[in-house]
Design a protein around this nucleic acid. Sequence first.
DNA 1: AATATTGGAGAGCAGTACTATCCAGTTGTC
DNA 2: GACAACTGGATAGTACTGCTCTCCAATATT
Lengths: 215, 215
Amino acid sequence: MRISQLAERGGVPVATVKYYLREGLLPPGRATSATQAEYGDAHVERLALVRALLGPGGLTIARARTVLAVVDDDSLTVLDALATASAELPGPEADVEPDLAPALAHLERWGWLVDPATPALRHLAAALAALEAAGFEVTDAHADAYAEAARRMASVDVETVPDDSRGDAVRVAVVGTILLEPVIIALRRLAQQDASVRRFAASDAGEQATSRPQG
Amino acid sequence: MRISQLAERGGVPVATVKYYLREGLLPPGRATSATQAEYGDAHVERLALVRALLGPGGLTIARARTVLAVVDDDSLTVLDALATASAELPGPEADVEPDLAPALAHLERWGWLVDPATPALRHLAAALAALEAAGFEVTDAHADAYAEAARRMASVDVETVPDDSRGDAVRVAVVGTILLEPVIIALRRLAQQDASVRRFAASDAGEQATSRPQG
DNA sequence: AATATTGGAGAGCAGTACTATCCAGTTGTC
DNA sequence: GACAACTGGATAGTACTGCTCTCCAATATT
């Protein structure tokens, strides 16, 4: 398979495939001459993965490269792979260090064992700070309900990771961690709709509940 | 309060405040002359909200403007406001229409009442398609667990919305919908860490569990 | 032999969120 | 009442990102 066919099967322009090759997101094909290379089905799958990470996953080129390096590195343990993948996911990236105390207080209440250096902890702290700055008070009860929901999701996630092949485990863990996030966000919005229809439909104009809310 | 003081209290450069004014994210101050205007505490709070939406919320200027217009519009019902805010949140924005069937099948199984035109439905469908393209199979059991988690979170969210003041209700609903998303993502990653430490720490090198996983 | 395609590299482009410069009017200070 | 400092307002420029275009000689294809 040549580059134009790979591009066609992936549904992207040839120039974009070349760009991904240049950026190291796709491994080079098997060179058959100075200006020719052969690509296989593995490249097609990899291209689909790249598109998924960059699109729905919301990763930048640089972060995708790191995540893919983790997926490719057979020497990493599942734990290392998950940690690296988790660290490369988009987050607030604030230039000022957020106050970790509120986040740590929650974690202690829940008894969660986490690496104090993990970026997710900083992300949580920054997100809580942003809520406070916006005048939204997060009660312990609210946080606890969220923690329980997160625990359930994570539990299923971890159960889903196969334990027979380390390569597969890493791939599933990394891809699942990243690509299930938009699923969660979408599900929450849909659940909110359902819940708010049930709560507010009676007090608002009732017929808006099942038709388009805004014309 | 003049513009430089507003900027200082918000922790942003004056040029940025001017930019937000130009873009309609901040309402203009009360003009006291041709080249002078007075800003109040409301502007400080608004500036914090804008920063929260643009930073942790991940909204673009254009989407933030729409969301803020919803918050400001007292004529909207809570349902309309939530729907509009939900629609403006960042999503896949695919140029090709994803297959809605798998997503609709899940929703029907759960008995959720949602507007078929809502962007979140499309986001869910796109996310599921991306997972499939990346070779990650989402089982019904996995999806069901996620749905239950989403339902719990949404339930708390909706309960949190006050029912005495419509303006407050809209503000809390919109801000909560947007700014709690990074909280959920961070919590899930932390919960994953906790769960995978418990599962994999025994089979991997054990001492990595509570120290930094990657030097 | 003529035409098309390839890998590779560099430059260019569109969008986003600022940031810097300029300007005349206004203010506070001496 | 001189004069520097600041203001709102407008315009242009910047840094970064993810492509996309153009060019090239070498190779395939017809």
